[in-house]
Amino acid sequence: MTGSDRPVVLIVEDEPDVAETYNLWLADEYEVRTAQSGDEGLAELDEGVDVVLLDRMMPGLSGDEVLARIRDRGLDCRVAMVTAVEPDFDILEMGFDAYLCKPIRSEQLHDTVENLLERSNYDDLLQEYYSLVEKQATLEATKNSAELADSEEYADLRDRVDGLQDDLSDTLGGIDDDEDFIATLRGLSDVEE
């Protein structure tokens, strides 16, 4: 994250009044950036952005096109589509992480941003968990059981693996929601570090 430790939300919205309303709602908790078009939004995007609120219907580049370019660039941000109509297709199949139907209420916007940040947190925990499991497996393959029993490094690793397991089951309610489930799986194949 850039500058402050607060998560960064980028609002891409062609109507200035609407963008300003979202900004007012979010500015207390997040660092908010705004862009008035798809092109401007892409210019504002960098590694520091955590969540993008993307208006679907804009002059110039549409929300769908912006999303495609975000995914092409391999940026690790979450994208919520803001739309005027309830979509009649599977939004997750299109690669969005969430959608919001206008008019949006403040509480709803907060909930969505929070949920998307929690998903990012889950991904980070899962990546860390995997790294530790790899280390543990390497130690188990190279040392015998007496050596392992004596190894402080191994005991420490086991503790951290257990701790992360608990953290993972506390995050996103342990994936009990279908949207979280599918979005998390999509993240596995999309994001290669």
């Binding site: 899962l126 968990y129 995997y130 993972l168 309610g173 994936i175 998390t184 596995l188």
Partner: peptide, 16 residues
Amino acid sequence: KTVFKFCHVLSSRFDS
């Protein structure tokens, strides 16, 4: 790595 994560996420889903 991906298969491990996949297994973990599926396990979590079946757990709930």
